[in-house]
Design a protein around this nucleic acid. Sequence first.
DNA 1: ACAGTCATGTAAGACGTTACATGATTGA
DNA 2: TCAATCATGTAACGTCTTACATGACTGT
Lengths: 185, 185
Amino acid sequence: MTKYNNTKYALLGLLTTGCRTGYAIKQMIDTSLNHFWKISYGQIYPTLKQLVEDGLATVKETSQEGRPKKEYFLTPKGELALQAWLQSPIKEIPAEKNKLLLKLFFGRHQSNEDTTKQLENYQQELQKRYETYEEIEKMITSHKNEEADATYWLFTLDYGKRMTIAAMEWCEDTIEKIRNWKDDS
Amino acid sequence: MTKYNNTKYALLGLLTTGCRTGYAIKQMIDTSLNHFWKISYGQIYPTLKQLVEDGLATVKETSQEGRPKKEYFLTPKGELALQAWLQSPIKEIPAEKNKLLLKLFFGRHQSNEDTTKQLENYQQELQKRYETYEEIEKMITSHKNEEADATYWLFTLDYGKRMTIAAMEWCEDTIEKIRNWKDDS
DNA sequence: ACAGTCATGTAAGACGTTACATGATTGA
DNA sequence: TCAATCATGTAACGTCTTACATGACTGT
C-alpha cells in the first residue's frame, strides 16, 4: 500500500457522494471542487485502481459488449480510512502560488500603467469567478433536499465567494494607491 | 534554452533585489515571498546555472581557497526577459489547493464537534500567519528608504493580510453556523 | 570546543498535467 | 450523418520537495 496523499483521500470522499465512475468523479471535481481542488484523469484512473488494490473500494464492471464502464464503491475499510483522514489535524496552511503577486513584487521594473493594467485584468477574472460561484450555489441549493452533503458544499462555496470579494477589494484599493502615488511623484 | 516558467522568472526578479547568491535568494524567499511563492534549493541552484547558460545572468566566483561562493548578476538580456514576462497577461487565476475545504466538503462523515475543532485549529493558524505578516511589514517599513522595491512588497503583504482576515472571519461565521445548525436538529 | 550560520550542490522520487489513443451511445 | 457526450486509459514530461553530502567561517 503506497503512501496516501490528500488527492487520494479526495477520491475516496467523492465515492461517498454518489459518483461511481472515473468520468463522473471528474465532472464533480470540475463543477463543485474546482475552486479548491483539481484532479486530472491522469490521476483519477490509476488512483481508483489503487483504492481497489488496497481494499478501500470495490469495482463492478458493467461493460456490456464493448462499452466499458466500471462502477466503484467504498468498502467499510474505505469509509474508516476517510474518517481517520478527516480527523487528522492540519498542521500548516499551504501558501498558494500567486502569479499576480509575484509580478507585483517586481513592479519596480514596469510602468505604473502596465501594473494597473495587470491589476484590472485580474479584477475582471475575479469577477468572472464570482459569477461562476453564484451559479454553482444555485445548482446546489436547488438540489438541496436530495443531497445530505449540500450544507457542507455551501460552506466551501461561501469561502470561495468571500475570498474573491476580498481580493477584488484589494485590487480596487491597490489600483487607487498606485494612481495617487504616481500623481505625487 | 529550455522553457521558462514562473519560478525561473521569480529567480530572475530576485537577482534585481540585491540578492547575489543562491543562499541569499533562499532567505529572501523564506521571509518576503513565502506567502505566495516558495522555492527550494533543489530548484534554485540548477536554475541559476541555467540562467547563466541562457545568457540572462553572469556568475562571479569569489571562492577564496576552499570557501565556495558564487555571485550572480543579471545581464541586459536578463532584464529584458524579466520585463517581457511582467508584461504578459495572466489568463486564469489558479485555484489554490485547500486541505481544510477538502475536508469540510466531506464533513457529513464527521461529527459537528470534530468539524468545528478543525475550523478552530485553522483559525489559530491563520492568526499566527497574520502576526508573521505584521512582523515582515515592520521590517520592510523600517528599511523603506533603502529599498526602491518596498512599496510593491507592501502591496503583496497587504494582500496576504486581507485574505487572512477574510479567512478568519469565514471560520468564525462557519463555526457559528454549525453550532446553531446542530441545536436545530 | 562547538553550535550556528553561510554556502553549494545532487539524486531519488512524489506529484501532477498534457496530449494522445480508443470507441460506444445519444440526440439533432 | 455527425457532433457531442460518455467512458477508459497511458506515456512523456514538467515541476518540485526531501534528504543527503560537504565544508568553511563566526561568535561564545
